[in-house]
Design a protein around this nucleic acid. Structure first.
Lengths: 185, 185
DNA sequence: TCTTGCTATGCAACGAGGTGCATAGCAAGC
DNA sequence: GCTTGCTATGCACCTCGTTGCATAGCAAGA
């Protein structure tokens, strides 16, 4: 299970509450690992019981108090152990690919609007990534030293960018293919 | 849930037993939707009860008998309805990306062998896809007509090829980045 | 004969993930 | 005063997916 580890990484990058984590999972980390707030609270509770993370009650003004979590020694060890474990290359689940193959037995051209919707979603994400890249990695760090956290975040973001570009190109290929079946057989 | 629909599509492409489906999910369909044989048998049972698919006992010589499933009217309708439903662009789960960002708090260079393993896996898949493409789509159909099933299978396969190429290029990027931290800080 | 291995189907149990719902503090606007 | 909306946390339930195990027919080879 990698949700534990995704949360640990996020907390190492910056301690925060369950609510804040949930919002990070809508951006940043969420680009390559999704989770709802219920999942996050559940995992936080378990990790706290296991001593992987520490809690600190933080009173706030103008809004409800929060529990700020940070990674404890045991959490670091658990993450370290996980990093050393080989994992299987991801198992993919592409609904859209199933739909495309399925459309052969229904109406291929009927899928066009759906594929266009997906294309727009990916274009949006790409724009978002590129804006983030320009903002956070536009200029090299002042002191010129190697910052592992920064460099590794950047290479992951480049992966997201490459993925979205690939998807957009492929969806164009799909659209061109579907288009050949407009009012066809 | 799309496992139902992935199975329906596979059975429309060619009727078969649970065992045969399980093997297809290790190849072909399995490239963009994974499933174990237990999942498949469970779903087949449910879909048969719901009248989505028909069964036929097929005696075999030299091996145990099998149950051959094929798609019934209701199954076609269910697939058709699903094709018309908009779906959300997939939620991604990349363990490796979590690991890469996590490596900033451990030993970045320690990830190199793991990333190399993934690179090999993707290279293998790419070779497999390219061989399949040459075999199944190397030459255009004799009669020159548009075959939706063939064309749509091909465009999905091209997606797989584009994905693997993108991943290999990105993993090279990751390796180059990690390499800068060899025996580093 | 015994083991190994492939074909073929299935159950039981558990854990992960998702949906819906509930609660509560506080601010801003109607 | 009431509603709306954001922050913040959590429970209950149900489904999906995975793991481990079990059974059984038949072939091939040691």
């Amino acid at each position: 299970m990698a949700l534990d580890h995704a949360i640990l990484v996020s907390l190492l990058e910056k301690p925060g509450s369950g609510y804040e984590l949930a919002r990070r999972f809508e951006r940043s980390i969420g680009y390559f690992w999704t989770a709802t707030h219920q999942q996050i609270y559940r995992v936080l509770k378990r990790m706290e019981q296991d001593g992987w993370i520490d809690v600190r009650e933080v009173p706030q003004q103008g809004r409800p108090d929060k529990k700020e979590y940070s990674v404890a020694e045991r959490g670091r060890d658990a993450l370290s152990a996980w990093l050393r474990e080989p994992i299987e290359p991801e198992s993919v689940r592409h609904d859209l690919a199933v739909k495309i193959r399925g459309a052969a037995f229904d109406d291929p051209a009927g899928l066009i609007s759906e594929v266009e919707r997906h294309r727009e979603a990916h274009t949006g994400r790409l724009g978002h990534y590129l804006a983030g890249e320009a903002r956070d990695f536009g200029e090299p760090p002042e002191d010129g030293t190697l910052d592992a956290e920064r460099e590794l975040q950047h290479v992951v973001l480049r992966g997201g960018i490459a993925y979205e570009r690939m998807m957009i190109a492929w969806l164009d290929d799909v659209l061109a293919t579907l288009d050949r079946f407009r009012a066809g057989p």
